[in-house]
Design a binder for these strands. Structure first.
Lengths: 113, 113
DNA sequence: AAACGTAGTATCGAAAAATATACCTTAAGC
DNA sequence: GCTTAAGGTATATTTTTCGATACTACGTTT
């Protein structure tokens, strides 16, 4: 690890209020259409959902399949490339779980941060 | 990985324009005093540096050692606990490097995102 | 011909985050 | 008794992100 470091790249595609949730939904669920995603994520607006999905699509993490039907149907799924990211997500998750316990140890219940 | 997922925790302590850089400086350099950090990070303001250091300190990633001298001296370093985070940072970094190459492949040089 | 359903886009504004600027404190040195 | 340097705090302003609302397109149903 030197002065030129790119772990921010991984952050970039993960940050934002909604990206983690969207990713989780798609990872657990396989393929989902827009409306399913929206229903499964309370309080997300169409605008946010679209925006975040487009960003994930740009990064080749999410695939967008449009069916030329009326009413329209658009299905989202994790790409093969995106799947290759799951070990990292898992590692981050494990660290996070561990860290919450660590904070607990340090500060007790005073407020769960 | 299920519906209850905490990889956001790892994100939390890493996000922000400056935290990654600060972490890197301290990881590469060992112990640094405030002014050294500030000099080594172009354009960061005192306020930002202080704020980010305090957050890292709260999470037990950074240690702050105050010397009661005049003029004051305060040295920052990565805690032992913080060191245990480096494999994760490394993994994120590796993924990031790889991902930049992937984007290159997909979109060419059109603009480096 | 009006209403419906799906998957959006467009516009505006509020809230949160980042940045800039000025000021404070301490004791030693001039 | 003013200046200097370290390590800040306080306050204001700019920038970015997020959200609320309204609108579009198009076939199908009523």
């Amino acid at each position: 690890m030197n002065t030129y470091c790119k772990f921010e790249t991984a952050l970039d595609i993960l940050i934002g209020k909604w990206k983690p949730v969207i990713l989780l939904r798609l990872l657990n669920h396989g393929t989902m259409r827009f409306s399913e995603l929206q229903k499964s994520i309370p309080d997300i607006t169409k605008k946010m959902l679209t925006q975040q999905l487009r960003e994930l699509e740009y990064h080749d993490i999410v695939h967008r399949e449009v069916y030329k039907e009326i009413p329209p149907r658009v299905e989202y799924s994790i790409t093969d490339y995106g799947q290759r990211m799951t070990p990292l997500l898992q590692a981050m998750n494990d660290w996070g779980v561990q860290h919450i316990a660590h904070l607990q140890e340090l500060y007790g219940d005073e407020q769960a941060e």
